[in-house]
Each structure stands twice: as C-alpha cells, then as structure tokens.
Lab assay of single mutants.
Amino acid sequence: DDVELRDGDWRVELKDADEEILRAVEEAIKNGASEQELRELAERLIR
C-alpha cells in the first residue's frame, strides 16, 4: 500500500509521488476531504 494515512494526522505520505499528485492531495486535504475520499483520490492518481 503506497498511501499511508494516520488516524487524526492528515499528513499523507505518497512514495514516489510526483508534484501533481502531491498538489492534488494537499488541495483535497485543504478542502476537508474525508480519509475515505483521500484514499480514493490517491488510488486514482497512483494508477
């Protein structure tokens, strides 16, 4: 699993992620995405 989400800690570690993925995830976090939404976003972007 390349995506690590810690309970109560919104730092997201994406291994080997490019800047576009990181920006998309950071934007989702700023917009108040839930953990499930972040997982789905990350899975779509990593593929």
Score class of each variant (00 low, 15 high):
Ile21Pro: 00
Asp2Tyr: 10
Gln36His: 08
Leu45Phe: 03
Ala33Asp: 01
Glu19Ile: 14
Ala24Met: 15
Arg44Val: 04
Leu5Phe: 14
Arg47Glu: 07
Glu40Val: 11
Gly32Asn: 04
Leu41Arg: 00
Ala24Asn: 03
Val25Leu: 12
Arg47Tyr: 12
Leu22Val: 12
Arg39Lys: 11
Asp18Glu: 07
Ile29Gly: 06
Ala33Leu: 14
Arg47Gln: 15
Glu20Pro: 05
Asp9Met: 05
Ala33Gln: 03
Glu19Tyr: 12
Leu22Asp: 00
Glu20Cys: 07
Glu40Asn: 08
Gly8Thr: 13
Val12Lys: 11
Glu4Gly: 13
Ile21Phe: 05
Arg47Ile: 07
Gly8Pro: 12
Glu27Asp: 06
Glu27Arg: 12
Ile46Glu: 01
Lys30Asn: 07
Ala17Thr: 05
Glu40Met: 10
Arg11Trp: 14
Gln36Tyr: 13
Asp9Phe: 07
Ile46Thr: 08
Arg6Cys: 09
Glu35Gln: 04
Asp18Leu: 08
Lys30His: 07
Ala17Glu: 04
Leu45Arg: 02
Glu26Val: 10
Leu41Met: 06
Val12Gln: 05
Leu14Ala: 01
Arg23Thr: 03
Gln36Cys: 04
Arg44Asn: 06
Asp7His: 04
Asp7Glu: 05
Leu45Gln: 01
Arg44Asp: 04
Ala17Ile: 08
Ala33Trp: 14
Ser34Cys: 01
Asp16Ala: 08
Glu26Gly: 09
Leu45Thr: 01
Glu26Met: 14
Arg44Trp: 11
Glu43Trp: 15
Ala28Trp: 05
Gly32Ile: 00
Glu19Gly: 08
Glu40His: 07
Val25Trp: 07
Asp2Lys: 10
Gly32Lys: 03
Ala24Leu: 12
Glu37His: 04
Gly8Cys: 07
Glu19Leu: 06
Arg39His: 04
Val3His: 11
Trp10Cys: 02
Asp18Ala: 07
Glu4Cys: 05
Leu14Glu: 01
Leu45Pro: 01
Val25Gln: 00
Asp7Thr: 10
Ile46Arg: 13
Asp9Val: 03
Gly8Gln: 06
Glu43Ser: 14
Lys15Gly: 04
Glu35Val: 09
Asp7Ile: 11
Val3Asn: 14
Glu4Gln: 12
Gly8Glu: 12
Glu27Ser: 08
Ala17Asn: 03
Arg11Phe: 13
Glu26Trp: 15
Glu26Thr: 09
Ile29His: 09
Glu27Val: 09
Lys30Ser: 07
Asp1Pro: 10
Glu19Phe: 07
Arg6Asn: 14
Ile46Cys: 03
Gly32Ser: 01
Glu27Thr: 06
Glu4Val: 04
Val12Asp: 11
Glu20Gln: 12
Leu5Asn: 13
Ser34Val: 02
Ser34Pro: 02
Ala33Ser: 05
Leu41Asp: 00
Ala28Pro: 00
Leu38Arg: 02
Arg39Gly: 01
Ile46Lys: 09
Glu35Met: 10
Leu5Ala: 09
Arg39Trp: 12
Leu45Lys: 01
Ala42Tyr: 15
Asp1Trp: 13
Asp7Arg: 05
Glu26Cys: 08
Val25Glu: 00
Ile21Tyr: 03
Glu27His: 07
Gly32Phe: 02
Arg47His: 12
Glu20Ala: 14
Val12Glu: 15
Asp2Trp: 10
Ile29Ala: 12
Glu19Asp: 11
Lys30Asp: 03
Leu41Gln: 00
Gln36Ile: 11
Arg47Leu: 14
Glu13Gly: 12
Gln36Asn: 09
Leu22Asn: 04
Asn31Leu: 12
Val3Gln: 10
Arg47Cys: 07
Glu37Arg: 02
Ile21Leu: 07
Ile29Arg: 05
Leu38Val: 12
Glu40Trp: 13
Glu37Ile: 03
Glu13Lys: 15
Asp18Ile: 06
Ser34Ile: 02
Asn31Asp: 05
Leu38Thr: 03
Val3Tyr: 14
Lys30Ala: 13
Glu4Tyr: 04
Leu38Met: 04
Val25Cys: 01
Glu43Lys: 15
Leu5Glu: 14
Arg11His: 03
Glu43Cys: 15
Glu37Ala: 03
Ile46Tyr: 09
Ser34Asp: 06
Glu35Phe: 08
Val25Asp: 00
Arg11Met: 13
Leu45Trp: 04
Gln36Trp: 14
Ser34Thr: 09
Ala17Arg: 04
Lys30Met: 12
Ala33Ile: 09
Asn31Arg: 12
Lys15Ser: 08
Val3Ser: 11
Glu4Ile: 12
Leu45Met: 06
Asp9Tyr: 07
Ala28Ile: 01
Leu14His: 02
Asp16Ile: 10
Glu35Tyr: 12
Leu14Trp: 05
Val25Met: 13
Trp10Gln: 02
Asp1Lys: 13
Trp10Thr: 02
Glu40Lys: 11
Glu27Lys: 06
Ala42Pro: 00
Ile21Glu: 01
Ile21Gln: 02
Arg6Val: 07
Asp7Lys: 07
Val12Pro: 05
Glu27Phe: 12
Ala33Glu: 01
Glu35Ala: 11
Asp18Tyr: 08
Arg47Lys: 12
Glu26Asn: 05
Ala33His: 04
Val12Thr: 08
Arg23Ile: 05
Lys15Ala: 08
Asp18Asn: 06
Arg6Lys: 08
Leu38Tyr: 03
Glu27Ala: 07
Ser34Leu: 03
Glu37Leu: 03
Glu19His: 09
Ser34Ala: 03
Leu38Pro: 00
Glu13Gln: 09
Ile21Trp: 04
Glu37Val: 04
Glu35Ser: 08
Asp16Lys: 10
Ala24Arg: 10
Ala28Ser: 02
Gln36Arg: 10
Asp2Met: 11
Glu19Trp: 13
Leu5Asp: 10
Asp7Gly: 10
Glu43Leu: 15
Glu35Leu: 11
Gly8Met: 14
Val3Arg: 11
Leu14Asn: 01
Lys15Asn: 07
Arg23Lys: 13
Asp7Trp: 10
Asp16Tyr: 15
Ser34His: 02
Glu4Phe: 04
Gly32Tyr: 01
Arg23Asp: 02
Asp7Pro: 07
Gly8Ser: 09
Val12His: 08
Arg23Asn: 05
Arg44Thr: 05
Arg6Phe: 14
Val25Ile: 14
Lys30Phe: 10
Trp10Ser: 03
Leu38Lys: 00
Leu38Phe: 02
Glu19Ala: 08
Trp10Asn: 02
Leu14Asp: 02
Ala28Leu: 06
Asp7Cys: 06
Val12Ser: 12
Glu20Asn: 13
Gly8His: 09
Ala24Phe: 09
Asp2Gly: 11
Arg44Tyr: 10
Asn31Met: 12
Leu5Val: 12
Gly8Asp: 07
Val3Ile: 13
Glu13Tyr: 15
Arg23Leu: 08
Ala28Arg: 01
Glu27Tyr: 14
Glu35Gly: 04
Ala33Cys: 03
Glu20Arg: 14
Glu27Cys: 09
Arg47Ala: 04
Ser34Arg: 02
Asp7Tyr: 08
Asp2His: 12
Ala24Gln: 14
Arg23Tyr: 08
Ala24Ile: 15
